[in-house]
Amino acid sequence: MELFLFILLSILCIGAVLGMIIVNNQAYSALFLVLAFSCTAGLFALLDAPFIAVVQIIIYAGAILVLFIFVIMMVDIKEGLTPEKKKWTMALACILAVVLLIELLVALKSALSPMATSVSGQAGNASEIGHLLFTKYLYPFEITSVLIIAAMVGAIVLVKKKDSE
């Protein structure tokens, strides 16, 4: 059952990302990504991380991508972007990406073989994570709040139209 879920979610996820790349409409891309992130959330849940899975769905699939869709609507690009002039950059990048894939797989093979057996057991429930956040990771957590405030203010200031314009 677990393996079946894993395979299903993985294929859906990878497929959704491929779909995002292939479609030309930005709105569709964003929707594909909602699917992909939801599948990732499922994978998180399979890995005994229910809290993160929920956060993933709420923040990523929910908030962030909704934000994207809003921006896409505001930007309003007409269909048919002109094709790239520099084709070779794209081709080279794809080749390099494949090389990276191979490298990472090789790294995985050599580095992770002893860890093949999983030491599962600790469930990542919300209360434990909360406890950790407010003890060991208190400072990073508080700093994150500052970061988010700064980002919020920054975004507002950037986008706000000035009176003179």
Binding site: V17, M20, I21, A93, L96, A97, L100, L101
Partner: peptide
């Protein structure tokens, strides 16, 4: 890797 390819 798909993300990289998508970016390019």
């Amino acid at each position: 890797v798909l993300g990289i390819i998508g970016f390019f």
